[in-house]
Amino acid sequence: MAQGTGGEARSRLRRVGAVLSEHVSPTVDADSSLEIEVVDSVAEVGRERWNGLVERSSRGSVFHRYEWLAAVESGLGYPARHLVVRKDGNVIGCLPNVVVGIEKTPFKRLSSAYPGFGGPLLPTDTMDALERVLDAVPSHCGGRTIVHQIRGLDAGYLRYNDPLQERGYRPYRRECRFLLDLTQGHDAIRSGMSRTRRRGIEHGEDGDYEIVAEDITRGNLRRFHRTYERVMDRVGAAAYPFSFFDALRPMADRLLLLTIRIDGEYAGGMLEILDDERDAVHGFFAAVPREYFDDHASELLYDRVFQWGIDHGYETYDFGSTTTDFTDGVFRFKESFGGRAVPVLVWERGCSPLWRLVKIGRSLYWPYYT
């Protein structure tokens, strides 16, 4: 499979400028040379132009890239409402959005973005572009789509907090992520783990096991997905369909599929997302059947991906989102690897009177919602 090129090369990539031009018939604001348009697919902008914008934006990430958003559109069937900013015909900014369901309700939200993390990419004319993009959002809600949500990847999105709140967006914090510093080296990472995790790795290493990086083929993804579905069913969570995994294959150079075999038998694996824009490895999907827990398959896989990330020049391992409840088992498991908890930055803006009712209902089953 294709692998990461190292932190130095990725930093050079982010500095590469791109000339982004394509003729589209937008709606022009008479008071500005900026033009805001909604597109129903990243395909309407094009791979080269869209990714060029991502690569020259300080906030760009793998979740903003053409290939990820195309997989969300085609593999999950989420309708896209991407807001594109143009100046003199050139693409200078965007706010990716897809329409997804609101949990436990018949309503929908416009989300930037989901799954993953999004938010505006506005490397030039930032304030003017941000105001115009945010002002355009309500016209792309309506019907059962009653709220707009922005999920920022990191604290850098706090720069937009005041303009967001001025336009009715409200922050809420019910998710966090654990980030592990890979630059400290593998020995220091192991030392920072809980005693339980260290012992699990040590006991697992005494067994007969093998971990390999698999090619991103349809067959390998299919095998992983079957195990992933079993695991999600066991924990009572909804699984993404195989169509989404299959749609990720065009971004194979941004995926790492690790498989573990114990006593020669397939024992699960992990599908990691490689964020070269942020020098980070995202632990997005893990699938280890219960029967391999006593063999410490999960600990062995995490330990190996940490070493892989170090070897390939990545700076951070991101365990992905979890609840902020320290009594939750997933929270404690991720915390035990020694990562640093950071909040997931989320802002929401109601686009319908129904949103107030949904918030009241949501607070009943998320008692710590604010």
Rank of each mutant, 00 (worst) to 15 (best):
Q3T: 13
Q3P: 03
Q3W: 12
L13Q: 14
R14Y: 09
V16P: 08
A18T: 13
V19E: 14
P26H: 06
D29K: 09
D31W: 06
E35H: 04
S41Y: 02
E48G: 08
N51I: 00
N51R: 04
L53Y: 03
R59K: 11
R65F: 04
E67V: 00
G75N: 06
G75T: 09
Y78K: 04
A80F: 00
R81V: 00
V85Y: 00
R86P: 01
K87T: 04
G89K: 02
G89W: 03
I92Y: 02
L95C: 08
L95A: 05
K108P: 01
A113W: 13
P120G: 07
V133G: 05
P138W: 00
R144D: 15
H148R: 12
Q149P: 09
Y157I: 03
L158G: 08
R167V: 06
R167G: 01
Y169P: 02
P171I: 06
E175A: 10
L182C: 03
T183H: 09
Q184P: 02
D187Y: 05
R195N: 12
R197W: 10
R199M: 11
E210R: 10
I211L: 08
E214R: 15
R218Q: 13
T227Q: 14
Y228C: 04
V231N: 03
G236K: 01
G236W: 04
Y240Q: 12
S243D: 08
F245A: 00
D246W: 01
R254L: 04
R254S: 11
L256R: 09
L256P: 01
L257W: 00
R261H: 14
D263F: 00
Y266C: 07
G268V: 00
G269I: 00
M270Q: 11
M270Y: 13
E272L: 11
E277W: 05
D279W: 10
V281Q: 06
G283W: 02
A287Q: 05
P289N: 06
E291Q: 15
E291H: 13
E291T: 13
E291P: 06
D294K: 15
A297H: 02
S298D: 11
S298C: 10
L300A: 03
L301F: 09
V305R: 04
D311S: 08
H312K: 02
T324E: 09
F326I: 14
F331M: 10
R332E: 08
R332Y: 03
E335P: 10
E335C: 10
G338S: 09
G339H: 10
R340W: 10
R340S: 08
R340M: 11
V342F: 00
V344R: 05
L345H: 05
E348M: 01
R349A: 05
S352L: 10
L354N: 07
W355L: 01
R356Y: 13
K359C: 10
K359P: 12
K359D: 11
I360H: 09
S363F: 01
L364P: 06
Y365C: 05
